[in-house]
Design a protein around this nucleic acid. Structure first.
Lengths: 339, 339
DNA sequence: TTGTAGGCGTTATCAG
DNA sequence: CTGATAACGCCTACAA
């Protein structure tokens, strides 16, 4: 049997479809008698309003699109959860899409969002060329960036204090006595990579430390990339005594490289990474990390989107910069004495 | 300016909307002349078909709903990624909803899926009473269960060989010399908990080992729950020498309890858990775990759903049981000599 | 307070 | 091959 429609309910209750709609939405007043009849009919038929029809009619889908690099990365998982919680609280659902930072796949996801007329889009770590994005915003679709923002595209962003956090963390390393540091960075084109690298450089510079060019590696994102980059750094004739990693996956890769090479942490190298992970406290040694408030980044992004939707006239809100949390554990120590 | 509609394209190209639809879908042949005019018009207007209208008209949304306990749990993240990849490959998108195993929230998610008329639903670790689910399936919505299935509800499931895997793992523990084992299990109502517990019991029984009642704890799901349960077990007058944990979160909790209590692993207790995590190899000590093929569980679930959608007449497919992978690391060893 | 009816953007059926 | 046109299910002026 076909799903009951609003017409079936109206017929059974002996009222017009408009009345049914009214009692369902509770917008306009309806007499108690009719209300009751409608409610009975709804119950009897097990009527469920069709959100697709409603969306078409209202021009609103109550859907938020979330584009992430990879929903199986715990960082994005937390962001997604934050976004979802806030979205659901506001009567929205979320459509997720993973891109693997593959521009083609990313375009496909964005195209799907547009075609489905989601009401807003949250973009995380996008690689999209700004033209694609500008076309989307131009169509009036609210958009918010999480984690980083592409150059010259409008829309607020929810960011972490990348540079400052990196700088502080590296200062800590320097305070421990390190004078020869390395960074496993991300692709130069990523704003976050640039910012964290800038923080790294700034901390070194203000301490009068110079950085060997071969000690700044642009790793391909992913555990494998981190591992390779770390290997290369550790195989230098005189390897650095401390390594700062751009993100969680690269950090895990770096860690695994030390294991495979039998290099002791923090005995021979200190290791510090952006992004915390649930198990970092239990790793051998517990990993010192800069924790981003991922969940909160998600909720803030949703809030920005919902605000924009509730108040389309409002001018563009400012970016939101959230503080990170520096969690000192045991993977960093004083450098080993040089022979 | 409003988004261009199919009518705008038709007008500009001087054809009927039907023709536009035909060249867009490439279903029915269209003369080259018209095709070209339509394509030009589409390009000129930047026309993007409205998927909502299409869904309403066709009665198909090309949407799959995925209900998980928590999208920020890496296990579910992997499942989601697998489902997404397979879904996208088949022209579908995925709508996610987290329930925290809260029945009310779960009903809300399912209701939203129904209202949005997703084409199929994948359920992971659901707590839904079967009546809710049966109503859904009764409406003809394809449904597949991941990880476990509720009692008496139709629909295929993608499962792991829970009982056998648990049994084998516990046999390993017993082979190490343990005779006094404990299990931190999940809620008795979860089928997976029952199955893994059954495997645990079976392995003990066949080795002639008895299990102390106080050594089987039903932990509340979550790290905190695992930690509490582990504490209680370790505070026994004569604590067990090996503990088997129901899942990743409980395992992490158990591990953290040993840390806090200063209990050595595997020196004083051996620890073994269902579900692997990226960092388990790096934990101190590396955690021995039963790895479920989470990503594959997602792709298989999508395949089941897409098959059902492509072939509605087909009879109900059989469950898919995927093998788990037992990864022996260092958190298990021979029991300490009893004084 | 209630009903009528047109419209949302596509698809599909049915003539030509 | 092409064009009208009636759905799809709901919302919302507008009228009563």
């Amino acid at each position: 049997m076909r799903q009951a429609s609003i017409r079936d309910v109206a017929k059974l209750a002996g009222v017009s479809t408009a009345t049914v709609a009214r009692v369902l939405r509770g917008t306009t007043p309806v007499s108690d008698a009719l209300r009751e009849r409608v409610e009975d009919a709804v119950a009897k038929l097990g009527y469920v309003p069709n959100a697709v029809a409603r969306s078409l009619s209202r021009g609103r889908t109550q859907l938020l699109g979330l584009l992430v690099a990879d929903i199986s990365n715990p960082f994005f998982g937390e962001v997604a959860r934050g976004l979802e919680d806030a979205a659901v609280a506001g009567g929205y659902q979320v459509l997720v899409g993973s891109s693997d930072l593959n521009p083609e796949r990313e375009r496909a996801v964005l195209a799907a969002f547009e075609s489905r007329t989601v009401d807003g889009v949250a973009l995380t770590s996008s690689t999209a060329d700004s033209s694609t994005l500008r076309k989307l915003t131009a169509s009036g679709m609210p958009m918010v960036f999480i984690d980083r923002r592409p150059a010259d595209v409008a829309g607020p962003a929810v960011l972490c204090d990348n540079e400052a956090a990196a700088r502080r963390a590296v200062q800590y390393l320097i305070g421990l006595g390190h004078t020869d540091l390395a960074m496993i960075s991300g692709p130069r084109t990523m704003a976050t990579a640039a910012q964290r690298l800038a923080g790294f450089r700034a901390a070194c510079a203000e301490a009068g430390l110079s950085i060997r060019p071969e000690c700044v590696r642009e790793g391909y994102l992913g555990i494998e990339g981190g591992s390779k980059a770390m290997r290369r750094v550790l195989e230098l004739d005189t390897p650095p005594t401390a390594v700062f990693s751009f993100n969680n996956l690269l950090g895990v890769g770096a860690l695994s490289a030390t294991r495979e090479m039998g290099v002791e942490v923090p005995g021979e190298v200190s290791l510090l990474t952006f992004d915390d992970m649930t198990l970092f406290p239990f790793v051998d040694p517990p990993v010192t990390a800069i924790a981003q408030p991922a969940y909160q980044m998600g909720t803030e992004a949703a809030r920005l989107l919902l605000d924009a939707l509730a108040n389309p006239a409002a001018e563009q809100p400012k970016d939101i910069v959230l503080p990170s949390d520096f969690r000192i554990r045991s993977s960093c120590a004083a450098p080993p004495p040089r022979p």
